[in-house]
Design a protein around this nucleic acid. Sequence first.
DNA 1: TACATTTACGTAAGTACTTACAAATATACG
DNA 2: CGTATATTTGTAAGTACTTACGTAAATGTA
Lengths: 317, 317
Amino acid sequence: MDFFEQLGPAALGSRLRRLSEQMTAQAAEVYSLYHVPVEPRWFPVFYVVATEPERPVGEIAEAIGQTHAAVSQVVKELVKQDLVRVQRGEADLRRSVVSLTEKGQAAWPSLQQQTADVRQATEALLTETRHNLWLALGEMEYALSRQSLASRVKAIRDQRAAGEVHIIDYAPQYQPDFKRLNAEWIERYFRLEAADLKALDHPDEYIIQRGGHILLASYQGQMVGTCALIPMVDATYELAKMAVSPAAQGLGIGWRLGEAAIAKARSLGAQRLYLESNTKLAPALSLYHKLGFRKTVSGPPSPYERCNIQMELLLGS
Amino acid sequence: MDFFEQLGPAALGSRLRRLSEQMTAQAAEVYSLYHVPVEPRWFPVFYVVATEPERPVGEIAEAIGQTHAAVSQVVKELVKQDLVRVQRGEADLRRSVVSLTEKGQAAWPSLQQQTADVRQATEALLTETRHNLWLALGEMEYALSRQSLASRVKAIRDQRAAGEVHIIDYAPQYQPDFKRLNAEWIERYFRLEAADLKALDHPDEYIIQRGGHILLASYQGQMVGTCALIPMVDATYELAKMAVSPAAQGLGIGWRLGEAAIAKARSLGAQRLYLESNTKLAPALSLYHKLGFRKTVSGPPSPYERCNIQMELLLGS
DNA sequence: TACATTTACGTAAGTACTTACAAATATACG
DNA sequence: CGTATATTTGTAAGTACTTACGTAAATGTA
């Protein structure tokens, strides 16, 4: 059972489940000790109905933090046991208003007694420990309500990943990566056009030798992103061939590439960046917008079929 | 959601489950963040197989605190995903030895990375709170391993019940209770005999007026137990008509009645108590033994068919 | 060496919830 | 006032485990 020790808090979820299952099993024993005709899993619903009568299913569900479906099923059982009765709501016929039957009323005092005993036992248990589980649970729920575990983990991963992402300049040996990364997404959404193949197969000839630049992003020893700057007229560069591998998306690599490309453009004396894209590519457009690009209509006609939106970023001086 | 506040620690189990479900849901999100072809519920098994290769199913189950059936099912899934491979044990053909495939090996580093990130996030989360959940869980598991919740609750209930159990002397208005309590168990195990009916219907005539005594136990306003002392020859009294209502069993009422009867017999100058019972009634025999009764063969023939064992308790002087 | 018992495992079914979907009723909107 | 949308509930199916049970292999016993 050293699994939990080895893993430590990374197994917090599993450990919580294990203890909760243990408590559930214990609860079953406690119930058999008292002679109450109520099963442990019915308790929350029964408790709410007993303390606040005439509640509809939905409200009970909200009170105990379960779904209406679960409550509906438990109520069905309780009706079968003749512990509660269900009536249509008076004002709203959709509602199922639940209240105790005579048998339910009769069972309530014993159940209250049992609950009081369990509470006393648990409270004693909690004072036996140095770290109070009840308070810890409350604090943990509060902390998670402020920021979920998933987003906390993501923040840590992103921070770690940032240190492992490197933006490097093109070199001929990267041509296969450059082609693969671009072909991957183009073929997913559109189809490769002749203009694509020329640039992807011969980036040296069609981009570098014409005064352009290509940047690549590496992560954990693999090439996971690219983008290119291609000179146009009037101190304008086109930002093109922006691609990030699906396996590396969500790491902010597009942003890093974009920023690096803008910095490179500035250092080349560019006054303006221009790009073409497609409105189907929502995440890409949102990235461009965050980088400062805005929609324009002044661009030249595109050689690519798939382009239906043009954007620009004025760099000032 | 004031259900948990109202109930307090009595709802500890439910609250644990709720948080564990929340964590499970968060885990699913975390997994989708990393591009690992492993589902959250596979993790424990995968982890053990990755860190300690060539483990049979049973050992994996023990390490992660689940049943072998659960592990068997997860392994089946993992085999379908080509993440692990199963071989027959070399020395023991019953064993299913599990090890990682190449694909599993390939997924392992990412999973390790993810685990490290989750651990870091959770550790940060734990230091954010005043009461450390991880330590509290450990302490709670330890406390429960020393004494289960059920037995703690039972101790509290018994203590409370002891104050509510009263042993009182017979009065004519208790005749229906006296009859009901005895008839209840006799009819459950045997059948009512003529000798029973005489004593149960007319205790005044057949017991009290012959110098005998009847004790009753009341609990929460109800009569839940009886026993009788019937004079025999030679300063011997028969302990008879011992009965405790099934709904009140486990509260030590039999013990209280027995002790009261022994005290009463002493005060009457009895030198010996005698009783007849049946070997089918194991709990009753164990109670008599605890009260000091021992098996004997010296008794007179019983007027009751159901009796096949005789016991006595010498009171000394 | 034969036979009963124990051990290891897989499969089926149960459990206590969930999500997904469907039906009935209530409300909003032109 | 009719129709679209929202709300409330019940039912079915899924989930991630469990318990129960059956089979095969190993072990103990006479």
